[in-house]
């Protein structure tokens, strides 16, 4: 026992800075969530402000648009999760089948790039792109199609939100799967070749089982985002005309709460969202360990 400790001293020391950071930036600020049940008065600080019970939540639930913002949040988030989950897998499998290495690398890099651009920037570009006199409408015009107000129509707007989010992020997801694909033992493919497997059979019986754990892991982690429909993207693109299809919890709370200085409302909604995400993580973790026999912890 004694020798074990003395052997591990330097490991523990190396752990210390990380622990301090976690305590300082993750555990300590958690105390601030009491604000969700208080009426914030700046001079009194977080602890000195009076308690109000559940009143901050009524801000969201009393509004006539509560149903709309909940529905939009869940629908947009589910669409993003669904497509954002499938497309990288398919794309990674397709890339994996390519023989020319430099082409594969180039494509990989290019699709990965948009991940690093901020939504503020991209929103500006998208707005120009899809404007009534923008390039997309000009191209449609060549085919005799009347101009469409993409950013002002509910149907188109939601498609653009989901589509542009997938376009921005699928390259990043692809990289994860490509990494997992390189981890598959090549001798499995050789064995399959000897057994006379076709390409599709190799995909079905070697490749997919090889990356199944990664798929489950990514799928599990993405489920926590059911209430996160992407504030910075929608906030930079939306307008009054498309509130019906795109106003989500975050944007509504921003307009009605934060803009008027009600920080406690923001905290309350943040806490609610975290609570829901926490439950969803537990559920999806249970599903993952049961069906894929995978354990994260």
């Amino acid at each position: 026992m004694r020798s074990k400790w003395s052997e591990q001293i330097h490991f523990n020391l190396m752990l210390l800075p990380g622990m301090i950071l976690v305590l300082l930036f993750t555990i300590w600020p958690m105390g601030g969530i009491v604000l969700a049940f208080k009426h914030f008065i700046p001079t009194k600080g977080i602890w000195g402000s009076p308690w109000t019970g559940w009143e901050n939540y009524s801000y969201l639930f009393d509004t006539p648009v509560a149903l709309r913002v909940f529905k939009n949040t869940v629908v947009i988030a589910l669409m993003k999760i669904g497509f954002g989950f499938l497309i990288p897998i398919v794309f990674a499998l397709m890339l994996n089948e390519l023989r020319i290495q430099w082409f594969k690398r180039t494509v990989q890099t290019i699709v990965y790039l948009p991940h690093f651009l901020s939504w503020v920037l991209l929103a500006g570009i998208l707005r120009d792109f899809f404007a009534v006199d923008g390039i997309v409408n000009q191209m449609l015009g060549m085919f005799g199609i009347n101009e469409i107000m993409f950013l002002g129509e509910n149907f188109w707007f939601r498609s653009i939100i989901v589509g542009s989010d997938i376009w921005k992020e699928f390259g990043f997801g692809t990289i994860i799967y490509l990494a997992a694909l390189t981890g598959i033992n090549p001798s499995l493919y050789e064995a399959a070749d000897i057994d006379g497997a076709t390409r599709m059979q190799k995909l079905r019986y070697v490749t997919l089982p090889g990356i199944a754990t990664t798929i489950v892991l990514v799928g599990t982690l993405s489920l926590q985002n059911v209430l996160n429909a992407g504030f910075d993207q929608i906030f930079n693109l939306y307008n009054t005309l498309v509130y019906d299809s795109s106003d989500i919890i975050d944007t509504y709370v921003y307009r009605a709460g934060i803009e008027e200085g009600h920080y406690e409302v923001g905290t309350a909604i943040g806490l609610l969202k975290s609570g829901v995400s926490f439950i969803l993580i537990i559920i999806s973790y249970g599903l993952a360990s049961r069906f894929a026999n995978y354990r994260i912890f």
């Binding site: 009524s58 009393d62 019906d244």
Partner: peptide, 16 residues
Amino acid sequence: EKKLTALNELQMKAYH
């Protein structure tokens, strides 16, 4: 205080 934001938005939507 609670509902005017939503009502104003409702108004603009109908006008549009």
